[in-house]
Amino acid sequence: MPSETPQAEVGPTGCPHRSGPHSAKGSLEKGSPEDKEAKEPLWIRPDAPSRCTWQLGRPASESPHHHTAPAKSPKILPDILKKIGDTPMVRINKIGKKFGLKCELLAKCEFFNAGGSVKDRISLRMIEDAERDGTLKPGDTIIEPTSGNTGIGLALAAAVRGYRCIIVMPEKMSSEKVDVLRALGAEIVRTPTNARFDSPESHVGVAWRLKNEIPNSHILDQYRNASNPLAHYDTTADEILQQCDGKLDMLVASVGTGGTITGIARKLKEKCPGCRIIGVDPEGSILAEPEELNQTEQTTYEVEGIGYDFIPTVLDRTVVDKWFKSNDEEAFTFARMLIAQEGLLCGGSAGSTVAVAVKAAQELQEGQRCVVILPDSVRNYMTKFLSDRWMLQKGFLKEEDLTEKKPWWWHLRVQELGLSAPLTVLPTITCGHTIEILREKGFDQAPVVDEAGVILGMVTLGNMLSSLLAGKVQPSDQVGKVIYKQFKQIRLTDTLGRLSHILEMDHFALVV
């Protein structure tokens, strides 16, 4: 994948999101292997301009796509893939009243899908469409860049269908997702969380590099694949309309690839034109409109599966009536509230959605109805927002919020430890010299600072030695090549209790 991002070429006709291997024109390309080798690009942008032909009021008969309808489940399912879809609609009884809503608040519980998330729908649909058009064949390999849930859905379907599955996901995604993927037989590649989507090191860039190296491999490409919004247009939206008897006044959905909100909203605009569509985008993402909503100094966020630093091709923002931004604290607070007060075992993005819903639905009156999409299960986040310690460490809970008995030293300040200034190293000294210094002084790690004293990161003896043994660096290389740029900081005025929580999850903390 090139470091400079080429513009994806656009073909003359058809839909841009065809499933299957992508040609340089962004659509299915038939021909000899030699032709494909000559024409197939190194990668295709996940934010390529959409060429979708959908228009409100256009006859369904003019759609270029294969459409399906929700099917009634048999008493005995032939395999677990038949437990994807037909998820329950559940009334939220307490939270709406707590925040003064007059309307009825309903939750579409997508964590009841077989793999635990709304992404099971698009995973199965992308595979079925690729099999139907002859792209996927027995023994082929599926590769997908994902925040985890699409990966789980694909790995689940691949396990049943017999495909090899490789999932490329950023490091910030939970260990629970990784464990589930491994249990399903998927191979996992992790990428830096802070890598831009168009960087060769991003999950998108690495996935395309693997595709170019592995024979008979395919990126189904949830960011561009029409099967993504079509899955929701054909099934999720129809289920909502049936469950609500066609009567709903507002739908609120958090947005990642945009397939969920695009597919549902398009069908609702056709069948229930008075329904307002509300999009939820986390602070630090750029999906919301108008652009002024996205202006923030924050560039990272903890909530998973929603928000991006690019506009995915499948996201149709014209069908969203209003956007709201959400933050991590309210997302996790509301997710825990949904679990504790409503018994809905949902993930953090569901918290984002409901946090926005109780604001947006203030305009609705008694007798009206708001539906929220709860995308995934708490299963993926047992060591994250479900953990009091994690919430404390991230600053989303305060010590006084917890009532468990603490040891005698818990409320003492870090400054009472009488710490001395640490050994520091410059980023320009060599790895070999740094190892000598650390061994001589008896230290395992040291902060790396520039000549102005600005902290650049941390270097550890173990990481340097393993990097040297693996051949990633040489003793003569500058130590700046092996620094940890993500590390926890703590102030002298913070409590030892807070430091204790940090050290339970990290090997060190830097006192500043």
Rank of each mutant, 00 (worst) to 15 (best):
E171H: 04
L81E: 12
T141E: 06
L154D: 01
H66C: 15
I214R: 05
V189G: 07
N194P: 10
E62W: 04
P78Y: 01
G139V: 04
E37F: 14
P145W: 00
N194D: 13
T193D: 10
I219Q: 02
A159K: 02
E239F: 00
C103I: 07
G116A: 14
K97I: 15
A195F: 04
P192I: 06
I95C: 08
F99W: 14
L181I: 06
R91A: 08
D140Y: 07
G139T: 11
S254W: 02
R266I: 10
L241W: 11
E104V: 12
C103K: 01
R209N: 09
K94H: 13
R51G: 09
A114L: 06
L101K: 04
P70I: 10
T135E: 04
R224K: 09
R132F: 08
P46T: 00
P59Y: 05
C15V: 08
T141G: 12
G148H: 00
S19Q: 09
A155P: 02
D179H: 08
L230D: 05
K25A: 04
A207I: 00
A157W: 07
I92Y: 06
V255E: 07
E40D: 12
E9S: 05
P12I: 06
P70T: 10
N212F: 10
I95T: 08
P170C: 04
R18F: 08
S254C: 15
T236P: 04
C275A: 11
V252M: 13
R58E: 12
S63D: 15
S117R: 04
D133Q: 11
G162H: 07
F111M: 05
N216T: 08
P192H: 10
A226Q: 10
G185S: 00
P2E: 12
D35M: 09
T68R: 12
E29P: 12
I219V: 07
P200D: 09
F111T: 04
A265V: 06
E40K: 11
R161E: 06
I142F: 08
G115S: 08
P21V: 04
C244S: 02
D79Q: 08
G14P: 12
L106Y: 11
E9L: 07
M89H: 01
T87C: 03
R125T: 05
K83Y: 10
P88F: 04
P138H: 09
N194Q: 11
G148S: 05
V204D: 05
V189F: 03
H218N: 12
P33A: 06
